[in-house]
Simulated scan of single mutants.
Amino acid sequence: MSRPDSRPGRGAPDNRTPNRFNLAGREADGDWLDARDAHDGATHLRTTVAVERPRTIIARNSSPDIGFDRSINPYRGCEHGCIYCFARPTHAFHDLSPGLDFESKLFAKPEAAALLRTELGKRSYRVAPIAIGTNTDPYQPIEGKWRIMRSIVEVLAETRHPLMITTKSDRVVRDIDLLGPMAEQELVGVALSVTSLTSRISRTLEPRAPSPRKRLAAVEALVAAGIPTSVAIAPVVPGITDYELEHIVEAAAEAGARNVFYLPVRLPYEVAPLFRAWLDEHFPDRADKVMNIIRSLRGGRDNDPNFFTRMQGFGPWADLLATRFQIAVKKHGLNMGRNRLRTDLFRPPSGPQMQLL
């Protein structure tokens, strides 16, 4: 049964999700908003964007199972609305729901490029690849207007700084004029996330992300421009998308991708109840089966936060996915070598006086 407070074109079924910061979810209490939805049906939810002004822009991490130690998030929240997004809980820090608020009440950081220039110019700065898109998507729809990601790439291209991009948007193709020359200097790699090739599943799983067809076309365009490009099958949702694993590997190879990798779905904190509500909404016939498989991957829990196992899971289902993936990769000749990014070409940004000369 469809939920009365669900919104057309959005990923989260509702805003009524518990969280760690005592934010009260809105329950139906008979007020005029509930009456309006009852008579008129659920209304479309408009996206709003607020300006965020952080003091620094490079975020650091020391996780031993992640291949980078620094990242940049041009935006907070993501309009793509992917129901499985593990970044959803971060919205609770702003007293906003990881549900519908995460995908409709967004934050942009227009001073990101200036902050980056300052941080790269410090004498203490040591070069290592910067990852962008590992939290929220830098090429989500609002990037078309704000162009914050574009300004960041401009700074990194100018300073010859290595960059790793992860996105599920074909909007990345817009920046080929910057990424192409960076690729010639071995400074950039791009990963396009393709979760499903089935439109019906994509429309509910990632309601405002570009279609899989557009993402694969973006892979072809990036490869044609000489940019090392991978496909991320992330996440694999057991019982929903796992049957497509081999098909996506094949599609990635046909698009010219060099490498491909996969990650089983993760359901940390507030994501788990949202995901269960999504299953009840869209796949009620198999909701229990899907959750049981996920728990078998996660040691009997909705989520396994432990390093290393959180990325691949463990047990029979994890072993089966790994075996299927390895066979498909070998069949299509992928993952023959890793993309190494150079760090020896970096040159600190020039100061304002030098820019005038």
Rank of each mutant, 00 (worst) to 15 (best):
Y262Q: 10
N335M: 00
A209W: 09
V249D: 10
T166C: 11
G25F: 05
P13I: 02
W32L: 14
N339E: 13
W317F: 14
R76T: 12
T48W: 01
E250L: 12
I293Q: 09
M336V: 14
I83V: 15
E220S: 15
V237G: 07
S202H: 15
D175S: 11
T90D: 04
Y75C: 09
W32Q: 13
A24R: 14
F275C: 03
D170S: 15
L345T: 03
D137V: 08
S62T: 11
G226R: 07
R60T: 12
R36S: 03
L356V: 02
L321D: 04
F275W: 04
G333N: 03
S124D: 13
I293K: 05
A232N: 13
Q312K: 14
I130P: 07
C78Q: 02
L197C: 05
L245P: 09
R324N: 13
R276L: 07
R266W: 04
P110Y: 01
D69N: 14
F307S: 13
D280S: 04
L156Y: 01
H94Y: 15
I327S: 12
T90G: 00
P54N: 03
K105I: 14
E79S: 15
R208C: 11
L334Q: 03
A252V: 06
A157W: 07
H332D: 00
D285V: 09
H332G: 01
I142T: 08
S211C: 04
S2I: 10
D344M: 10
V290F: 00
H332L: 07
G313H: 10
V194L: 09
V249I: 14
F308W: 14
R286Q: 14
V237Y: 05
E79Y: 00
G77E: 08
S169Q: 13
I201K: 13
L205G: 02
E281V: 00
P74K: 11
L100F: 04
L297C: 07
A131L: 12
E220I: 00
P89D: 08
N61H: 02
I148G: 02
L279E: 03
G144N: 06
F102E: 08
A59F: 03
P228C: 02
F93Q: 11
R26S: 04
G9E: 04
L120H: 11
F307G: 10
E250N: 05
C85K: 10
E246Y: 02
G300C: 14
E281D: 12
Q185R: 15
N15I: 04
A87N: 11
L45Y: 06
F325D: 01
A322F: 00
D177A: 15
A217N: 08
D31P: 05
K122W: 00
P8W: 06
D37S: 10
W146T: 12
Q185D: 14
T159F: 08
D101R: 06
